Simulated scan of single mutants.
Amino acid sequence: MSTINLEYESPYSGFYNVFGSQFVCFSTQPQLQSWKLEQAINADTICRGLTEFYYDTESGRGHFILPDSSLSPTGHHTLRYPLPNVVTQRTVYRWQDRVRDETHTHIATGAHGFESLCCSEMLAEMVEEAQMTTNGKVTCPLCQIIWQDCRAFEPCDFMVTGTDR
Rank of each mutant, 00 (worst) to 15 (best):
L50E: 04
T91Q: 03
A43I: 02
T88H: 01
Y12T: 02
Y93W: 05
T3N: 10
D101K: 10
T45R: 14
S21T: 13
F23N: 07
H77R: 15
Y55D: 03
E38I: 02
R48C: 12
M159Y: 08
E128H: 05
N17F: 13
Q96Y: 13
W147P: 00
G136T: 07
W95G: 00
A111S: 10
S34G: 06
M1D: 00
H63R: 14
T133Y: 15
C47E: 09
P67T: 14
A152Q: 13
Y55A: 09
H76K: 15
F19P: 00
S120N: 07
G20I: 06
I145C: 01
S116E: 07
F23P: 01
H76Q: 15
P73N: 06
C25E: 14
P73V: 04
Q131N: 09
I46W: 09
F23C: 03
S13P: 03
T78Q: 12
L66T: 02
I107K: 11
S21F: 13
T88S: 02
Q22N: 08
W35R: 08
H104Y: 14
N42H: 07
S69P: 11
T91C: 09
P84K: 01
Q144R: 12
A40S: 15
E102W: 02
R151V: 06
D68N: 15
I46P: 01
Y54C: 00
R94S: 11
S116I: 01
P30C: 06
H104E: 10
K137G: 00
S116P: 12
G75S: 14
P11E: 08
R90L: 02
N42L: 05
R151P: 00
D164N: 11
R48M: 02
W35Y: 08
L79A: 03
C119P: 01
T163Y: 10
K36S: 04
F26H: 05
I46N: 08
